[in-house]
Design a protein around this nucleic acid. Structure first.
Lengths: 160, 160
DNA sequence: GTGCATGCAAAAATTTTGCACATCA
DNA sequence: TGATGTGCAAAATTTTTGCATGCAC
């Protein structure tokens, strides 16, 4: 999927809701698509402030993108994060609680079970969020060797 | 499990970390145990402000309770929530995106699959959070009948 | 032209931090 | 007594809102 396709889908959504298609909204969608992984509002603002786009508008537009299903919104490591949701396959997150690394995974059996659960309760499935937390293999070893601090790069202070 | 048992476990945790057992920490743990379901910091402060307990201390103590595994912390409906984690069986959450009702469920197959996934990636499992979102059966019907607003009570404005 | 969208600034809401004093071990 | 904990107030963050102006339709 190309950035333009993503923006096009957003345009389609806006039309369907009879909302205006503006240059600002297109810019935000473009930039969201180009973010490497998950990101938060300050991350995005860094890219958009040079275009004179205000944080308030970023919040408002991210909400639209989320409603459109083009963006997923989730909480990870005490921070609200967003992620473009169409350019790559659906996945969930596994986080090391010590060094902060985030592993993306997808699992067919898990997805099927989740869908079943939702149905059993009479709900129509819309979305879900799975965040697993554990200790990665490297940190398990580090923990045994020493009580040292986790590695600096990619450490717990790393943004989501 | 009784409130006193819960507080006792917290005392044990504090001792293990050589932290002080104080009346304030005991009060907070007591109140946490007695909250009906999930709650946020303002909810808890309502109960504790009469004891002159400051929000800052509530935040600090909730972090300890979470580290102790006595409380789960999670995000639901755009709000950071907490939940006492020992008095009742482990469960996940299913939320209606229209009326805001929260259904708690537990599912053995799901838990097992999650544990497997964590292992496959070489992680040691610590915790997880599953939040499913959908449309409950009543809201599915309402949606067909009209484009009316969701019901007022238990509606989207209901706290987590 | 009308109404929605935007930037800006202010406000609100949430969470963290510094510090003097209180409390626990 | 010494170290840790607490309340309070202030600060830092994050998110929302009001409003005048601009832009899409």
């Amino acid at each position: 999927m190309q950035p333009e396709d993503f923006v096009q889908l957003f345009r389609k959504y806006l039309r369907s809701r009879e909302l205006h298609i503006t240059r600002t909204r297109e810019r935000i969608a473009e930039e969201v698509f180009q973010m490497p992984g998950h990101f938060d509002v300050p991350d995005l603002w860094v890219k958009l402030r040079q275009d004179q786009i205000a944080p308030a508008t970023i919040y408002r537009t991210l909400e639209l993108l989320t409603e459109a299903g083009l963006v997923r919104k989730f909480f990870i490591r005490d921070r609200m994060c967003y992620e473009e949701n169409l350019g790559r396959p659906h996945h969930e997150h596994l986080i090391c609680s010590r060094c902060g690394q985030v592993v993306e995974f997808s699992d067919r059996a898990l997805e099927e079970r989740l869908a079943e659960i939702v149905e059993v309760h009479g709900f129509r499935h819309q979305s879900h969020q799975v965040v697993l937390a554990g200790l990665c293999s490297r940190c398990q070893q580090e923990e045994i060797k020493t009580n040292s601090e986790p590695p600096g790069l990619g450490g717990p202070e790393a943004r989501c």
